[in-house]
Design a protein around this nucleic acid. Sequence first.
DNA 1: TGACGATACGGACCAAGGGTCCGGTTCGCA
DNA 2: TGCGAACCGGACCCTTGGTCCGTATCGTCA
Lengths: 197, 197
Amino acid sequence: MTERKSRKDAARNREAVLAAADALFARCESPAEVTMADVASAAGVGKGTLFRAFGDRAGLLRALYEARLEPIRQAVEAGPPPLGPATPPQDRVPALLDAVLCFKLDNRRLALALEESGSGSPYQAEHYEQWHGLLQAMLEQIPGLTDTDFTAHALLAATRADLVEHLTGGERVPRERMRAQLANFATRVLGLGPLQA
Amino acid sequence: MTERKSRKDAARNREAVLAAADALFARCESPAEVTMADVASAAGVGKGTLFRAFGDRAGLLRALYEARLEPIRQAVEAGPPPLGPATPPQDRVPALLDAVLCFKLDNRRLALALEESGSGSPYQAEHYEQWHGLLQAMLEQIPGLTDTDFTAHALLAATRADLVEHLTGGERVPRERMRAQLANFATRVLGLGPLQA
DNA sequence: TGACGATACGGACCAAGGGTCCGGTTCGCA
DNA sequence: TGCGAACCGGACCCTTGGTCCGTATCGTCA
């Protein structure tokens, strides 16, 4: 491990900040109304501590996001089917998209905060690169598909946090229905046989 | 006309502000680095004037966007094929998507500014509602398609400004290639016959 | 044309929030 | 137990969106 041991008060504070931020983003309506000062005071910590630990607001969001994302990443990299690597692409692509969608559904506020307030476009984020790369590699193995780079982007775009938020919050689309619609859409894009209702 | 006559200095200033903002957003790298004060001074106008004319930053962006969008809207509502209403849906859907994509390509910075800095999600914007509604109505007329609401969202998501920006700016995808890829993607989603390279 | 009410102008001003700084404290190792 | 390093935290700074009000301009009516 290259990680230098840190003082335990520092580690404790880092955890406190993560927990507090998590709670605040979950509680609040719009991520914009959670200020860094709020997070600091909720964690019982000074702003200096917060910024030293995470660099800036985007850093805090990223750290939270990555922590939440870890289980899914594990399941994708070395888990059981249909997410794991042993699954044929035709089934794994929809499974991956479904996992991403469910993640966004379960972490609406957080994903929203990261995508909108995160410095620059979400396309520069490391985890996006990973999802896109993986998805593209899977698409590449499906015969008859071209433009896998663009197709991967387009499929992932259907799971954008603000779209998900709009569908659930504004149009009141239930979770299961949305998952079915995305699966249907993916199936159609993959061009697998005649789609059924 | 319900529009009350305004004083001509007001009208002149409004135009000056629009022109200045247009130029600034086109010139600058990221829309975030164009401040309201910049726009005001570039237009030779005070901040008060600017805010009275447009309400807030989002209002200015919207006004600019709408002005740019007008020609396309016209072409869609009552123009020649393939954009006009006389075109069969199978051809009109790709045409519409292509038009939207070209618009985003031609107005990258502006669209980016509106989508990211525009108050709230871009899904609350009036023009998005219009595009989505129109697209959905067209999809509805294509036999064999279900989930037209979601499908319309997903197709439009493939033309999001930050994705377009990422593809052109980061991945250096040429304009024509991108248009072809989107057309291909749309075709596949519409489920029309076997797709060719 | 002169005067007057209404409207617009514009820059000083305000508030909020992200990010920085540094004196004081705590930690952990010898 | 002593000491240097690391950390703490809140006061402070600065940018930026947005407001306010005294002043200038417009347009109309006599």
